[in-house]
Computed example of a mutant assay.
Amino acid sequence: MRNPTELYTVVLTEADVPAGLPLVIGLTGFVDSGGAVGQVSQYLIDELEHRDVVVFDNDELLDYRARRPILVFDETRITEFRRPALTVRLAHDEIGAPFLLLTGYEPDFQWERFVAALLEIIERYAVASTTWVHAIPMPVPHTRGIGVTVSGNRDELIESLSVWRPRTQVPGNVLHLLEHRLTQAGHPTAGFVLLVPHYLADTEFPSAAVTALESITAATGMLFPTDRLRAEGREFLARIEDQVEGNTELARLVGTLEERHDSYMEDNPLRSPLTDEDGELPSADAIAAELEKFLAHRQSSDDEPR
């Protein structure tokens, strides 16, 4: 394997970064249900004071043909090239406490080398703990709090917060590999996978972003401003409720998801909230068809933000 250090450029040395900080990671990859990771990453960058610490090399890690950068074309010429960024930043939470924040895209190439580079960075800056967030679609109702599956070696977080603990095979992402390496090394690490209603997976669901921030707070003690996201989440859910109340079939399907969710949370013999007694998944098609009208209206409205 080629030298991992050559994958990144150091902007702030360890002399400029306090030792013993938590590292928080949110990378957008092949799935980001409810836009949870994307929302949290942008929200923290917009809301918090931060400085670049380490910048990764796009040309080594990014498949430009699969995820083409955005260009701004102004009548006769290109005026802006919006370069993707995969960056570790030194940020400060709402009360000024410092932490390290890695955001950007999930690398398309060189996962082992990228993880080795992250292990170097974690050692170089004497990182105290590593926390990462991810979001996947699940047949759960929007009327209940968003659950999480917690992985890693922080047993106190797993015991108190992990609502679904399957034994299964799933498509991995690069942060699963990082977690595996960190666990082997005995470094404190926790991954939070949000279980987002499958019929809202393709939306920007503000409540998912709030749950991601709450999970990070539980793992790190960092405090983040969430008032705007919570307000957007209440408005979003209110408009979904309007759709549900006006459609008997949609209400019945949501009610079915609620019953299965509540049974699972009450230690019902159902093995998970994802299947019924016959092992069948409730279809998302009927819910999605009704919500399509709501989402189309939301995205095209002139007086509402996208």
Rank of each mutant, 00 (worst) to 15 (best):
E60N: 08
E60R: 15
T130Y: 08
L61P: 01
S263D: 05
D93C: 08
F99Y: 14
T168Y: 03
E49V: 14
P188T: 13
R144V: 07
E214W: 06
N247M: 03
Y8R: 14
P273C: 02
R165H: 00
A284M: 08
D108Q: 07
E159H: 11
A284H: 07
E235F: 09
H297G: 14
I70V: 14
L27N: 05
F192P: 09
P171W: 02
Y8C: 10
A218H: 13
D63M: 10
V88D: 00
H297Q: 13
E249Y: 04
H198F: 03
V40Q: 03
L175H: 06
L223T: 12
L118V: 13
G104Q: 04
R181H: 11
V88K: 00
P141V: 06
V10A: 12
E266L: 13
A284R: 14
R77S: 03
Y264Q: 04
L161S: 13
T217V: 03
D16L: 13
L295E: 07
I287D: 00
S162T: 11
A218F: 05
V17P: 04
H261L: 06
D262V: 10
P282Y: 07
F109E: 01
Y125T: 11
E75A: 12
L175D: 02
Y64L: 10
L102Q: 02
V133N: 07
R228A: 14
I216L: 12
E80F: 00
G233K: 09
T9I: 08
A19C: 09
A238C: 06
E14A: 15
V133Q: 06
F81Q: 03
V88I: 15
E60K: 15
S272H: 02
Q184A: 15
